[in-house]
Simulated assay, not measured.
Amino acid sequence: MDKPLSSIPAKRYFTIGEVSDLCGVKPHVLRYWEQEFTQLRPMKRRGNRRYYQHHEVLMIRRIRDLLYDQGFTITGARNKLQETFQSERDVRRNGDVIPGGADTAPSDDVGHRDFDNSLDFEDDVDVADLSGEGDLSHRLQLIRRELYEIRNLLSETD
């Protein structure tokens, strides 16, 4: 487990095998963690194939760090993630600056904020929804999400 993790490629979706290699965790462990950590919800396509997004890979690395490196139990890691998410939401709601800067691109270092936690996004949203009619705040949320994904991809190439 001491082997350093490789950098995450600039891709939009990753298979469970790719995530397993990137995070140093076996696929069956990833499937188990999906049941234990509600924040971890990969998209499923044909035949229930899982496709993880970049922010989910970061979250898995964070979970791995809490469990394997810091010695948390699953319940403890779940609580720690929940505390972190809640404190970041509270800080954003109060208009304060999050340590490390809310306007900085998320890092793939497990010690920093996970991409998934940097914004309060709705699940199962599609950028194609931007062209249709709908709630302005929902459409802005979609734009914001896409911009953060683009920013993250660009920061990886540096």
Rank of each mutant, 00 (worst) to 15 (best):
V125E: 04
Q70G: 05
D103G: 15
N79P: 02
P42G: 02
T15N: 05
R78N: 13
R41I: 10
R46C: 08
R93S: 11
Q53M: 13
R89T: 08
G24E: 07
K44G: 07
L119N: 06
Q86G: 04
V29K: 05
L67A: 04
L40Y: 03
L66Q: 01
R41D: 12
N117C: 10
Q86S: 11
P99V: 03
I98K: 10
Q39L: 10
D123T: 14
G24I: 03
V97F: 01
G101L: 02
F85G: 00
G76I: 00
N94W: 06
G111E: 15
I60K: 00
E83Y: 10
Q82E: 15
M59Q: 06
H112T: 12
R89M: 12
T84F: 07
T15G: 06
G24T: 03
R113Y: 03
F121I: 06
G101H: 01
H54F: 10
P106M: 07
P99K: 08
L22R: 09
V25N: 01
W33K: 00
V29S: 11
K80W: 08
D120C: 08
N79H: 04
L67T: 06
D103H: 11
H112S: 14
G111T: 13
G71D: 09
E122A: 14
R31Q: 14
Q53H: 12
Q70M: 14
G111F: 09
Q86F: 05
G101C: 02
L30Y: 00
G95D: 10
P42Y: 00
R113E: 10
N48L: 09
H28L: 07
F37W: 01
E122S: 15
D120H: 07
T73F: 00
N79I: 09
P42S: 04
N48W: 06
T104E: 15
T104K: 14
T104M: 10
R41M: 09
R92T: 04
G17I: 02
S118A: 14
Y32N: 15
R45Y: 03
P27A: 00
H28D: 15
G95Q: 13
Q82D: 15
G111Q: 12
R89K: 14
R49A: 15
D120A: 14
R113W: 00
H55C: 06
R62P: 04
S107C: 11
F85N: 07
R113A: 05
L67P: 02
L66W: 00
G100D: 05
R78V: 07
T104G: 08
E34D: 09
D103Q: 12
Y52C: 01
